Deep mutational scan, measured.
Amino acid sequence: MATDAALRRLLRLHRTEIAVAVDSAFPLLHALADHDVVPEDKFQETLHLKEKEGCPQAFHALLSWLLTQDSTAILDFWRVLFKDYNLERYGRLQPILDSFPKDVDLSQPRKGRKPPAVPKALVPPPRLPTKRKASEEARAAAPAALTPRGTASPGSQLKAKPPKKPESSAEQQRLPLGNGIQTMSASVQRAVAMSSGDVPGARGAVEGILIQQVFESGGSKKCIQVGGEFYTPSKFEDSGSGKNKARSSSGPKPLVRAKGAQGAAPGGGEARLGQQGSVPAPLALPSDPQLHQKNEDECAVCRDGGELICCDGCPRAFHLACLSPPLREIPSGTWRCSSCLQATVQEVQPRAEEPRPQEPPVETPLPPGLRSAGEEVRGPPGEPLAGMDTTLVYKHLPAPPSAAPLPGLDSSALHPLLCVGPEGQQNLAPGARCGVCGDGTDVLRCTHCAAAFHWRCHFPAGTSRPGTGLRCRSCSGDVTPAPVEGVLAPSPARLAPGPAKDDTASHEPALH
Rank of each mutant, 00 (worst) to 15 (best):
A142Y: 12
L49T: 00
Y231V: 07
Y85H: 00
Q173G: 07
P200R: 10
A265E: 09
T68M: 10
M194A: 06
R272T: 09
V199M: 12
P95S: 06
G150M: 03
K245E: 03
L106G: 00
K133M: 01
I181Y: 12
E17C: 00
L10M: 04
Q57C: 01
V226F: 08
V206H: 09
P116T: 04
T72I: 02
P125L: 13
G263Y: 14
Q44C: 01
T3G: 01
K102S: 07
F59K: 04
Q108R: 09
K164S: 13
A117Y: 15
S187M: 04
G178V: 13
L106S: 00
R127F: 08
I181D: 03
R110I: 13
V38S: 00
G228T: 15
S217M: 06
P266T: 11
K243I: 10
P148Q: 12
L75M: 06
G263K: 13
K259R: 09
L106N: 03
S99W: 00
D76T: 02
E51V: 02
E216C: 05
T130K: 05
L66I: 08
L67N: 03
E17V: 02
G228C: 06
Q172P: 05
E40A: 00
A205M: 01
T68N: 05
A141L: 14
A21S: 02
L210W: 05
A193C: 14
A261V: 12
L63M: 00
G155I: 03
T16R: 01
K245H: 14
A142R: 06
Q189M: 00
E229I: 02
A144I: 10
K52R: 06
S217G: 11
D76Y: 03
A271T: 08
G218R: 12
F236V: 08
A160W: 15
L175K: 07
P176S: 14
F100V: 01
Q173W: 15
P148N: 05
A140V: 14
A2T: 03
L128I: 13
A144K: 03
K133V: 01
Q189H: 08
A141Q: 13
K120L: 12
K161E: 04
A144P: 15
P266V: 09
P154F: 15
L28R: 03
D34Q: 01
A186M: 02
G267V: 12
E137D: 13
F82Y: 04
A117C: 11
S71T: 11
Q213L: 02
A121P: 09
L63Q: 00
S196R: 12
L13M: 13
S239G: 11
L122F: 14
V226C: 03
A246G: 06
A25T: 05
K114T: 13
D23Y: 01
A19I: 00
V38W: 00
S71N: 03
A191N: 02
G219S: 07
S196D: 09
T72L: 08
A152D: 06
D98N: 08
L81C: 07
S187W: 02
